[in-house]
Nucleic acid binder design. Structure first.
Length: 486
DNA sequence: AGCTATGATTCCAC
DNA sequence: GTGGAATCATAGCT
């Protein structure tokens, strides 16, 4: 849709209208030349050289004038110009034009009367409403953020998908800009063309009968033509918005696996909160942030709070459905967290030693050394054994009775499968360390723990304690302290 | 191509 | 509004 097309369309319409006028002129001329009296209720002034009583002479006079008008194009330019000038200066010209205009007006009304004042186009109204709703038309309101939110809501939550939203907004803003630029162009073109046509008609009104009403009508025709072009613009804009919206929704549905680091972070949290794997909003935010940071360094994508919620929802249900399958994973993460904890505790102790060199801590050192001597694998095995209770903290079918109860650091009990003396010594050591370091916070800032609580008899998690926050552990006397205890 | 894993969505109950 | 359960749709592997 270009300006040239628009102008061409308007010109066509104008030409058609002018053809109408020419036909009218001809018919009027024909009537007059045929010798009938001119209608319109207006008496012509007495023709030149007559006293006004000679009706035939007057008719002849008008007939001559009209004949000259009709044959003016057959003459040479100079001759025509001279004749034209003569006619323009003729004293009867204003009266004749006035009558002709009146006749034209009447004929024109009967022809176009039905077309005048057509009601507002319902389709145009629909388009206008839609563009307003999408934030494309009307005042700027954040580039259609409302529409983006609506699209997100329509797709089932995830209202915080800021990245997709910003993309959507950016694209919508682009569409909006294009729409407004084009609209402005059309309006400018319309005004220019209208002015041009008006000037032309005013100019022509000196040589042919054109009434102000006719000019007005012509302006109306031009405006209608332009508004129909505007409708096309609005239609294409609406289509563009629709396409953008559907793509936006499609993109949201497309699945992409989280990065390894992100999954690890989520898994670590899940298995360290196996007793109650329901992170609070803050915890989710923190996890999302953590995952984002980790991921953005690698892949460049982020994970939102909703995605964290989805992940935990899926994880809970899948874990519960097939605990056996996740056992290994649970052990792995439990061990991992424990190792981290042990290292952190050791670091803390070394720090405290550095700060107070007079405090001997040979006992721990020896034990820690012993611990360090183990290969990572054996450490894992050891800790896995210790943590059988962590993943097995649920009342698993066929396993509930075999768990041994073991006191945790702060008095809570663990359900461990094979806790040997060696393990016990490690526990004692770490207990000692913990007592010195006043607890260990896991990488997420929370005291990690493998609680004794698990799936209740009906298969659901027991919400005895709510260790949901990553940042603010609210552990009562009955709760389990850090996983370092393991 | 078929299978499994997994993120997202939908429906329902609370 | 949140979570469980079922389901969809796709990624990734064999």
């Amino acid at each position: 849709m270009s300006f040239s097309i628009c102008v061409a369309q308007c010109t066509d319409s104008l030409a058609a209208t002018m053809d109408d006028q020419a036909r009218i002129m001809q018919s009027i001329g024909g009537v007059s030349l045929a010798g009938h009296s001119v209608q319109g209720g207006m008496a012509l002034p007495p023709p030149h050289g007559h006293d006004g009583t000679d009706g035939d002479g007057r008719k002849q006079d008008i007939g001559d004038i009209l004949h000259q008008i009709m044959t003016i194009t057959d003459q040479s330019l100079d001759e025509a110009q001279a004749k034209k000038h003569g006619l323009n200066c003729h004293r009867m010209k204003p009266a004749l034009f006035s009558v002709l205009c009146e006749i034209k007006e009447k004929t024109g009304l009967s022809i176009r009367g039905a077309q005048e004042e057509d009601p507002p186009d319902p389709q145009l109204m629909r388009l206008d409403n839609m563009l307003l709703a999408e934030g494309v038309a009307g005042p700027e309101k954040g580039g259609g953020s409302a529409a983006a939110a609506a699209a997100a809501a329509a797709s089932g939550g995830a209202a915080d998908n800021s990245i997709e939203h910003s993309d959507y907004r950016a694209k919508l803003t682009q569409i909006r800009q294009i729409y407004h630029t084009e609209l402005e162009k059309y309006e400018q073109a319309c005004n220019e063309f209208t002015t041009h046509v008006m000037n032309l008609l005013r100019e022509q009104s000196r040589t042919r009968p054109i009434s102000p009403k006719e000019i007005e009508r012509m302006v109306g025709i031009i405006h209608r033509k332009f508004s129909s072009i505007q409708m096309q613009l609005k239609q294409s804009t609406c289509e563009a918005v629709m396409i953008l919206r559907s793509r936006f929704l499609d993109a949201r549905r497309k699945r992409r696996n989280f990065s390894k680091q992100a999954t690890e972070i989520l898994n670590e949290y899940f298995y360290s909160h196996l007793s109650n794997p329901y992170p609070s909003e803050e915890a989710k935010e923190e996890l999302a942030k953590k995952c984002s940071i980790t991921v953005s360094q690698g892949v460049g994508s982020t994970i939102t709070v909703s995605q964290v919620s989805n992940w935990f929802g899926n994880k809970r249900i899948r874990y519960k459905k097939n605990i056996g399958k996740f056992q290994e994973e649970a052990n792995l993460y439990a061990a991992k967290t424990a190792v981290n904890a042990a290292h952190a505790a050791a670091a803390a102790v070394q720090n405290s030693q550095a700060n107070s060199p007079t405090t001997p801590n040979s006992g721990f050192q020896m034990k820690d050394e012993e611990f360090q001597l183990d290969s990572a694998e054996s450490k894992n095995t050891l800790l896995t054994n210790m943590f059988t209770g962590s993943s097995g903290s649920f009342n698993l079918p066929n396993s509930g009775d075999m768990f041994l109860r073991m006191q945790s650091l702060n008095g809570d009990s663990y359900q461990g499968a094979q806790v040997g003396a060696n393990v016990q010594s490690q526990v004692d050591t770490l207990r000692h360390v913990i007592s010195q370091t006043a607890g260990y916070n896991d990488p997420l800032g929370r005291n990690t723990m493998y609680g004794p609580h698990g799936l209740s008899a009906n298969g659901g998690w027991q919400h005895a304690t709510t260790p949901s926050s990553v940042t603010s552990p609210t552990e009562g006397p009955g709760s389990v302290h850090s996983d370092t205890s393991n």
